[in-house]
Amino acid sequence: MNVSMPATIENPEKKTQPDKDMTAAVVSVDNVCKSFGNMKVLDGVSLSISHGETLAVLGRSGTGKSVLLRLIIGLVNPDSGSISVNGNNFAGLALDQLGEIRKKMGFLFQQSALYDSLSIAENVAFPLEHHRSSMSKAEHDERVKQLLDEVGMNGDSTKMPSEISGGMKKRVGLARALALEPEILLLDEPTAGLDPISSDEIDDLVLKLQRERKMASIIVTHDLHSARKISNRIALLNKGKVVIEGSFDNLQQSEIAFVKEFLRLS
């Protein structure tokens, strides 16, 4: 069984604890079930995450990892159970009320979901134009430049999404997700479909942002290497349930057959 990872991927800074008492859960998922037709995707999932913490959600394809993120940001409603963000329960909220909660969240989509009729800079400026209308055009431009600088994309700001690669799209998607300075960052497969070098660059970028901004992050991924590198805690999903939740060491020490198999094959 090959579960040991190279020592170089351990990042000591991710272990840094938040510098103030922020142990209250910013995202709380309580006994959530979700089905699509006859297929039960999530079956009583409970998770929570605190300020400054990074949770990686791992699991096989189709186990509901992306659905979990979509539930957390309110794009999908749970069949049962509850989801709350900063103590606000999503149940029964109107779209505008939900919007106020979403302003505190950034979401990186699996396929980046960049607006294909807008340039890279316009994509990043989009949330600012709608929610920071008090800012002047010059301030918007400066903020967009700063965000694109952070993700290393400033040289391509006038390009269209169709003119850039998958890794670059992820970077722009990340810049857009960070535009409103969210407290919670949700990343759906940030390294999926990327070569190892681009994946590592994205991981480093996420780590850098976490260090600088102290956000709570939930990262859905298949990539155990990436999960170990950027998260404090890992939750492993199988058949719509959380099989195990804890540190990477907890996973390694687990005697659960699925966990052993997942680690062996990753």
Binding site: L95, D96, L98, G99, R102, Y115, F126, P127, H131, R176
Partner: peptide, 19 residues
Amino acid sequence: SMKVTEQIDAIEASAINPY
């Protein structure tokens, strides 16, 4: 096309009412 490429979801996730 915007719906199937999740662009409408991205608008909603940005706290903007897509409707």
